[in-house]
Simulated scan of single mutants.
Amino acid sequence: MTDAIRADAAPRPVGRYPHARRAGGLLFLSGIGPRDPASDSVPDNVLGADGRVIAHDIAAQTHAVFANVRAVLEAAGSRWEDLVDVTVYLTDMAGDFAGYNAVWAEYFPDPATAPCRTTLGIDALPTPIAIELKCVAAPKE
């Protein structure tokens, strides 16, 4: 049995999918980005005259995406500490990995209790964001 989760405190999905879906004892989150839930803006993106992103702040976007993940977890009755696996997509691995990794260390200071993590460098995401997370949580009963 599976059930879809919608989180009003998180940004709307950019496609026809739920924020998360529960299956058995696990919670699977759809890709979550750093867009602001109220304005749909991306934190600290700098746009050029043509509307394209010319600069971004990976630390600000990482804090924002973590807040959005937390909002989805809470809407599902789960907690930050229940995360067991995180896949991270960065659009600028060379430029952003160190900054993102520093913020990760703030949220997960002890590697022994941190979720498993895979980080991938990719060419683009569906909106003008620099980071997206795909998460799996194992909520405690």
Rank of each mutant, 00 (worst) to 15 (best):
I54D: 05
I54C: 11
A55W: 08
H56Q: 14
H56K: 09
H56A: 15
D57Q: 13
D57C: 15
I58R: 00
A60G: 09
Q61G: 03
Q61P: 06
H63A: 09
H63R: 13
H63F: 12
A64F: 08
A64L: 05
V65I: 07
V65P: 01
A67C: 10
N68T: 08
N68Q: 14
N68M: 10
N68G: 14
R70N: 12
R70A: 13
A71F: 03
A71M: 06
A71C: 06
A71G: 06
V72H: 11
L73C: 05
L73G: 03
L73W: 04
L73P: 00
E74P: 02
E74Q: 07
E74G: 02
A75R: 05
A76P: 06
A76W: 05
G77Y: 03
G77W: 04
S78F: 01
S78P: 01
S78Y: 02
R79N: 12
R79I: 00
R79P: 03
R79F: 00
R79L: 09
W80N: 04
W80C: 02
E81M: 10
E81Y: 05
L83E: 00
L83Y: 04
D85A: 15
D85P: 07
V86P: 10
V86T: 07
V86C: 11
V86L: 08
T87L: 14
V88P: 01
Y89K: 12
L90C: 09
L90K: 08
T91K: 10
D92Q: 12
D92G: 14
M93F: 13
M93Q: 11
A94N: 15
A94E: 15
G95N: 13
G95V: 12
F97Q: 15
F97N: 13
G99S: 14
Y100R: 01
Y100S: 10
N101Q: 09
N101P: 00
N101G: 04
